[in-house]
Design a protein around this nucleic acid. Sequence first.
RNA 1: GGCCUCGUAGCUCAGUGGAUAGAGCGACUGCCUCCUAAGCAGUAGGUCGGGCGUUCAAGUCGCCCCGAGGUCGCCA
Length: 505
Amino acid sequence: MKLAKILRQKPIDIAKKISENLNSEYIEKTEIAGAGFVNVFLNKKFYADVIEDALKQGDSYGSVDLGKNKKVQVEFVSANPTGPLHIGHGRGAALGDSVARILKFTGWDVQREYYVNDSGLQIETLGRSTRARYFEILGRGDEALFPENGYKGDYLYDIAREIISLEGEKFLEMPEKESLEFFKKFASEKIMSGIKNDLEKFRVKFDKFFPEGYLHENNLVKSAMEDLKTRGYAYEQDGALWFKTEDTIGDDKDRVLIRANGIPTYFASDIAYHRNKFITRGFERVIDVWGADHHGYIARVKAAIKAMGKNPDDFDVLLIQLVNLIRDGKNVNMSTRAGEFITLAEVVDEAGVDAARFFLLMRKSDSKIDFDMDLAKKQGNENPVYYVQYAHARVCGLKREYEKNGAKLSDEKISEEIFAGKEARDLADMIASFPDEIKSASETLSPHVLTGYATSFAGAFHSFYNSGRIIDAPDAAGRVKLSCAAAEVVRKCLELVGVNAPERM
RNA sequence: GGCCUCGUAGCUCAGUGGAUAGAGCGACUGCCUCCUAAGCAGUAGGUCGGGCGUUCAAGUCGCCCCGAGGUCGCCA
């Protein structure tokens, strides 16, 4: 139909010509439908070959080399070490980790990084909050007031108690100035190690934890500012240093880099950080996972990347929206400041890693999701995680059953006759389209493509399974092989979203 | 007010300019003497927020309006 205008012919006539000239050993017939669609019917040999090919490629089936081994960095979670991870961080963790897995599978050289915000006002507040709890427990709360924007969660009581048992009451008599460094360091390191622990349980591993302090200690912020100045993208006014944005891209106004009081803004640190990523460490592509409330920040970071002489198109930001936890059909309200929130660890304990990860990846990252705890815990076809995992376990059962009597699958050829049935053809169709799904998930950085595909794929398998006997049917070997290829695809999908594929359930 | 995201079945959401718009949950009807019923088959449920345009073709692209949220600091 697109050719109609160019060739100045009717779509139907073009369709006829195309269909007459299509030639392949795999085409059974072609039909012209509607306004000019060419329907191509694939023959049984095509399906048999697809399955044999998928089995032969095994673990690498579906892999497409999109990255050409180029260096990409995925930075995600990066939660400040001021409190435990909550379920929203879990969403970022699941997304970043899955995107990294998908990129690796599609030929990228991937590094996973966590940016640790270990300096600045929030850590200051954390230190003061901890110190206040310390005084409170020791009965002298009136001498160290809890900060106005302090962290109210119970975890600071635990940390304060630990400080008391390790260090005793010595900080009671020490001036705040002297003791604060200790409280800051102890609390943030303690919380950070808890975060690492939670992430490990969630099957998320980082190649590098990059501390913000590194930028300051090595004067990287200063040198990034100098660089901007020489390039003509920074100027001084009213005692502050400004980023000049008009003749770069996107952003609508100039931004402050160094305040009049000499303290750099977050933007300045971020410029230094991204300069380090792109230039010092040579990443050819950088992907950041941010909370959706930071979306207004994208334009200025892209502008900064352009200002440092790099292509802003090599920088992607994935925004994650809020997670609503639903229990007993009702919203569970969360407020981080007030210390009322459901931690990631609690969700993992209750629903399991598999359900948690799968649920957090079922939707586009930038739309809000409801995490239905009751559904996530259900063991049945209502729960998409089990539905998909069960497809895998079923095939493993089939294979065990088939090989019980010493039969070897690899010796058998697939009989084309098994593709006479619609269910077998539909399943093989889905297996054949797996590489396209992978490509799409990788190009759009969207794990939800795979959870969705896995769910409908499992449906196709269950339909096939229920459409007739597999093992004691004629051509059993071919049917089992088709099942095995299907299981391989399911397993790979699950692996790419970080979910286990059990052999028995 | 400017900018960004979103508005699709009762609920939560997929949908890369193509045919009769899909899935899960919820509701309803059937199916285990049989390789795992953690399964299958089926029914009901839609003015794709509204309008105008571009196009052979619009849920998808453009403009306007309505509604929800976010963001706009020498905060982080």
